[in-house]
């Protein structure tokens, strides 16, 4: 279907899939902004300076809308027809869907002004193609609560359990915390040798704990204790 530039939606404008993560959107934005630079030699013979400027403005608008979860959710609602027509998600990139509009478990995140919601499945990513249900997206601003008291020590295994309980994948956590998935795996496997120096690790743990929705202090302290024990084994 041919569309004028003015009629492209924000996803088409940034050349990303409507299921793109915020990281992908950011990357795409940087790329498109470079392409539509007023001095670009690949443009001037197609677009007049005015047109280029207009495209640039729209690209800015698109980025500012899509990069904030709340704005993006509202925007996705207005695009519902378009999103419904999407072909089913391809198999290999099992990327998390960070913009699924409604989370049944977090009803408070529904935009208050919107009309009564139809079933969330109506505009959630078409899941049937995936073998297992798509894990719920990471929610950036989970209310932080104290970690469960009945857990004696927060080891890597416990962290993994907590994460899996919340239905998050490593990739989800990596996306919200901006930590590399490899380090997160190392934390869970307690692969201490591969982890960075103590102060950095502490920062990682704090972020990880927050992503799981817990107050970080106890979790970080417990894990670091195990890390220290590995680094300085008790002398015989």
């Amino acid at each position: 279907m041919l569309k004028k530039i003015e009629d492209l939606n924000y996803y088409e404008l940034l050349e990303v899939s409507p299921r793109a993560t915020s990281q992908e959107i950011h990357k795409a934005y940087e790329r498109i902004r470079k392409i539509y630079d007023p001095n670009s030699i690949a443009l001037y013979s197609l677009f007049s300076p005015d047109e280029t400027e207009k495209i640039r403005q729209r690209v800015e608008e698109a980025y500012r809308t899509l990069i904030y979860e709340e704005n993006r959710r509202m925007y996705d609602l207005s695009l519902r027809d378009y999103l419904d027509e999407l072909p089913p998600q391809e198999q290999p990139p099992a990327r998390p869907v960070s913009a699924t509009p409604v989370q049944p478990s977090h009803p408070s995140s529904v935009p208050p002004a919107s009309p009564p919601m139809p079933s969330p499945a109506a505009y959630a990513a078409p899941a049937p193609a995936a073998p297992a249900p798509v894990p719920p997206p990471p929610v950036a601003a989970l209310p932080v609560q104290p970690p469960p008291q009945d857990i004696a020590e927060f080891s890597g295994t416990v962290l993994r359990m907590l994460r899996e309980q919340r239905g998050m994948t490593i990739q989800n956590v990596a996306d919200t915390t901006k930590l590399s998935a490899r380090y997160l795996e190392c934390i869970e496997e307690e692969n201490f040798a591969k982890l960075p120096a103590r102060p950095y690790l502490r920062g990682f743990l704090v972020n990880y704990a927050k992503a799981l929705g817990y107050e970080p202090d106890r979790i970080a302290a417990d894990f670091l204790k195990r890390y220290d024990a590995f680094k300085n084994p008790p002398k015989k």
């Binding site: 569309k3 530039i5 790329r31 498109i32 470079k34 392409i35 030699i41 690949a42 443009l43 677009f47």
Partner: peptide
Amino acid sequence: VQIGFSMKSACQKYFG
């Protein structure tokens, strides 16, 4: 190298 991608994007948006 990037110019190829720029032309691709511009062609998509201008010519469709």
